[in-house]
C-alpha cells in the first residue's frame, strides 16, 4: 500500500475504474435531493475512488498532490459553503438555512430557491466528507509505527 504496485492489470484497471467511480459519486451528489443519495454518500464514493488510487498507485504521489494546504483547504471549504449559504439566507431576511429567502437574490420563485439551496448544501457536505475520509485513511497509513 505504501509503495507503488507494479502489477500491470491492477494499474490499468484502476486507471479506467476511477473515472467511472468518480462520475457515479458526482451523480449521487447532484441527484441527492430527488432520489436516494446525497452529499454524505456521494462524498464517501468519491473518497473510495481516491482510496483505490492510493492502495494501487502508492501513497507517495498522493501525499505530494494532496498536501497539508489542500487538506485543510478542502476540510474547511465544505463547512464554509454550508454556513455561508445559511448566512446569506439570514442576510436576505429569512431564517438561518431557510433557502426560500434566496428568491430575493435570484429571479426564481421560493420553491425553486429551496431546490437550489439544497443542492448547494449537498455540494458542501460532499466536499467535506470526501476530504475527511481521505484524511483519516492517509493519516492511518502514514502514522509512525510504535516500536515494542
Amino acid at each position: 500500500m505504501i509503495e507503488k504496485n507494479e502489477n500491470i492489470i491492477l494499474k490499468n484497471i484502476t486507471q479506467y475504474l476511477v473515472a467511472f467511480i468518480q462520475l457515479f459519486g458526482l451523480y449521487v451528489i447532484a441527484h441527492g435531493h430527488g432520489s436516494p443519495g446525497g452529499g454524505f454518500q456521494g462524498g464517501c464514493i468519491l473518497a473510495a475512488s481516491y482510496i483505490l488510487m492510493i492502495t494501487t498507485l502508492g501513497i507517495e504521489d498522493t501525499k505530494k498532490k494532496y498536501n497539508e494546504f489542500k487538506k485543510h483547504l478542502f476540510n474547511s471549504l465544505g463547512v464554509f459553503i454550508y454556513a455561508f449559504t445559511g448566512f446569506v439566507c439570514l442576510l436576505l431576511g429569512a431564517n438561518y438555512l431557510d433557502y426560500s429567502g434566496l428568491s430575493n437574490l435570484f429571479p426564481v420563485d421560493p420553491i425553486k430557491a429551496r431546490y437550489i439551496g439544497t443542492f448547494v448544501i449537498e455540494v458542501g457536505v460532499g466536499i467535506t466528507v470526501m476530504s475527511i475520509m481521505l484524511t483519516i485513511f492517509v493519516e492511518l497509513l502514514t502514522v509512525k509505527r510504535k516500536q515494542s
Partner: peptide, 25 residues
C-alpha cells in the same frame, strides 16, 4: 433505500479500507 445506500458506501466501502489501513500498522 437511503439507509441501504449509506450502509453500502460507508460500511462495505470506506470502513473496510480504514480497517485494513489500521491492521497494516
Amino acid at each position: 433505500v437511503d439507509v441501504a445506500f449509506t450502509e453500502a458506501a460507508v460500511g462495505a466501502g470506506v470502513s473496510t479500507a480504514v480497517f485494513v489501513a489500521a491492521i497494516y500498522q
